[in-house]
Design a protein around this nucleic acid. Sequence first.
RNA 1: CGGGGUGUAGCGUAGUCCGGUUAGCGCGCCUGUUUUGGGAACAGGAGGUCGAGAGUUCGAAUCCCUCCACCCCGACCA
Length: 571
Amino acid sequence: MSMLQSNLYIPTLKEVPNDAQIPSHQLMLRGAMVRQLGSGIFSYLPLGYKVAKKVMNIIREEMDAIGGQEFHLPALNPIEIWEQTGRVEAMGDVMFHIKNREGLVLAPTHEEIITFHARQHIKSYRDLPQIWYQIQTKFRNEPRPKSGVLRGRQFTMKDAYSLDNSWEGLDVSYNKHAEAYRNIYSRCGLKFFVVGASSGAMGGSASQEFMVESPYGEDTCAVCEDSGYAANIEVATSEIAPIERLTDNPEVEEFPTPGARTINHLIEKFSIPLDRCAKSVVCFADGKPYLVLMSGNDELNESKLQSALQATAIRHADETELFDLTGAHAGSIGPINLKTPMTVIADKRLENVNGLVSGANKDKFHYRNIDMSRDCKIEGYYDLRSVKGGELCPTGCGKELRVVNAIEVGHIFKLGTKYSQALGATFLDDSGVENPIIMGSYGIGVERIIACFIEQSHDEKGIMFVPSIAPYHVHLLGLGIKKSDAVKRTCEQLEIELQSKNIEVLYDDRDVSPGVKFNDADLLGMPIQLIIGEKNLSAGNVEIKNRITGERHVVSVDDSTDLIKKLLVSK
RNA sequence: CGGGGUGUAGCGUAGUCCGGUUAGCGCGCCUGUUUUGGGAACAGGAGGUCGAGAGUUCGAAUCCCUCCACCCCGACCA
């Protein structure tokens, strides 16, 4: 079938639409892949949908390869089933509720529905394991959609669920997914890394995120290229010199510190060494106040605090609360002489340290010579600090960590029995005992793969697709077709020849100037441009341009398709 | 939800402060002629509820009020 560009709907844009800020968004609009319908709502145009289908097929092949079975579940769900797992409340505003039909919601994910179907017919350990997946539209009422298709209210997700009869089985299923995911991203041409993630309040035992480094990412990760260490900042650690105990250990003493509102003031104006400063932060964990001590300018990591305290919600005290609880304003708060007694915890770095300076809970005064063991009542020491770029990799490889922003393109998760228990999805084991099915949940964002790929693979002219996800393999540019019958005939001949070799061709047969064709071709980004013009053709030649490397080959008409085949395979 | 910004033709924009011709320009689009290896030239042409509603005024893109949409920052994000 001939793909004449003059007949296709490929509305490229010369200028950058005002709303698009990041390269992938701009190029997906300019390159006729998507159009926006509303905030966080996008239509795929034919070219963009071709890419999506290629990505989805790669996902499908890799999921099938680990024994996955494809379902297609409804997006419209009875709310009752979500009430049974308590997730109507947990999801809150993220879940769309149907207004003119009581009791229906739009599914933001499908653990509940999968578990429902598992309960219907999984009865015995002999029925397990299973891997079930689907590629389907998800609905999430994001408070703030942004960055084009990267954060939308409606998006395409591959979600998979493993059902096992043992925890060892879950490990096997989980590892299969980890491998499949690596294959998927590699085949899509993405540079990615995997991080251990916070398992959060989901009750799961393990979780990893597949990340693509990007300044537009909303996650922060610490990575080390040398050792391969990579972790979400929520759990990342580093090798950091311990703070030594001083041999001289005098009594605690109050001293005036006018104007000292920050640790830096203490260092600069009062000559206190950085590692002798103890910073105090007051937080509420599930409504209960805590004083948290951090060393020097270390940043308190709320995720770490949350898991240390096993709390569901953490928030900082506001100014008024701070004064009411401690008797001082920010800058003069410390563990000793608190107006209201509260639990004090500290970062591991401060364990058994002495000679410390901290606020006196009296404005413009601090204490010095604080000995954590002698003078404070610390309920516990935990790793609570956020890793900073430049600190040493915790593997001991000796290299510095980089702290980077990243976009989450996939997440694999050992769920356990939360949903099977809540919904009564059980099986009889080989001794006849009833057990909840042990589950895993595994997600991939299709649009995110596409947008991340474009973020990684573009230049000032446009997109640079790899063959595996390109809408077409070859962009055939016929220059001056109207004027030259020879050019036209050669184009038609080579199009057929390429197609016979299973190479997908987009044939630009439009009656426009060469410059327009070149620029559109560079914008749309097919891996190979086959350029046919009268000048080369008069010598029996055509030109082949590699979009990614920029290399050009002038070859004879007869050799051209073989060379293209070779170039496409070598990628 | 808080803060900031923007809405004028398919895209990009001028005009808005200080009300007053027929709302202007570039690109794109249509017709014709000439062009044809990096976004061609000339000539002619089509396309606008100036985000919506209500108001002030002889007169509103412009001033007042209300609402809506979109973008950015923050909050939020199994």
